[in-house]
Amino acid sequence: MSTPARNISAVPEPAPAPRISDEEALNLYYWMVLTRATEERALNLYRQGKLPGSYYTGRGQEAISVGMAAPLRRGADGDWLSPWIRDLGSYLVHGVPVWRMFAQFMGKAGSTTRGKDGNLHIGGYEWNIPCQVSHMADMIPLTVGAALAYKQRGEDRVAVTSFGDGATSRGDFHEGLNIAAVLEVPAVFVAENNRWAYTTPISKQTKVTDLYKKALGYGIPAIEVDGNDVLAVYSAMSEAVAHCRAGRGPRFIECKTYRMAGHAAHDKYESYMPMELLAEWSDKDPLKRLEQALREERTIDEAKLEGIRTKVKDEVHEAVERADDDGFADPSEAHLGVFAEADTDA
């Protein structure tokens, strides 16, 4: 079922990715189920008026968010991961506990920002996740900078960031990629081409709708993969990360996918999205596809999958309870933290 990654660049064809074990595949399944369950629960909470602001989902893009994070090393000394707004799964895989995601959405003290920022503006030194900003593409140069630091110190760490098709229109995308190529830093750029930037279709965003071609223009080896196939994303990412760790410069992966809902929960996307296209992509749902592969190609017992889903249900339930019980930070904290007193007081 996997669409093989097509290597467009001039670099030699990489060795075929090693077969993904059943255990690895089930691990990816767990994270994808957890991602979807967390988002569905958060969306319910939003509709009940329990989440301030709006709510942004990555429904249909879980294969990318999970597949890109899974091959990375976790922790403060691990790989830098700067995911964008559709990648809740990346945060989970890279170490952020589920209850803190809910606390974040609620603006509670247990939020990774102690309520100072909302939605997926999540981060922390302990996970090596910088806190993304709302401005598209800003995190691309930052990611190049982290990769530069690793290169300067001779560490075999990589820095990874993801972004949508809309972000490729901003200057920081181009400046960041260009600098990464020239400085030959170990950075992996993951473009999630979901064909929509809020209400604007990709045809009105760019004439070059295959985003990997933009990276090739900067001299960065680039491939496109089926973004709804977690095994394809995971394989491509594993290969790109190995390439970076070996000191061979940056890589770019375009994941072709589709945004399965509005820009945010408040967005009446039915007014501008062609419903037949949505239905078509619904059949390519990444979770359904992985389940099918697990059952049919790997003959994994349905009870095993059901066990994972039950475990996730319990985890999400406990996480929401814990976030609900959590208080808000004292209002006096609004005054604190503008300046650092020491190098890292995270």
């Binding site: 140069p141 930052l142 190049v144 982290a146 300067q152 110190r153 400046e175 960041g176 600098i179």
Partner: peptide
């Protein structure tokens, strides 16, 4: 310039 400062921010966060 935007890229230069952005790269510097990332490098600073990564310990440089």
């Amino acid at each position: 310039e935007s890229g230069i400062v952005g790269v510097a921010v990332g490098a600073a966060m990564a310990g440089q």
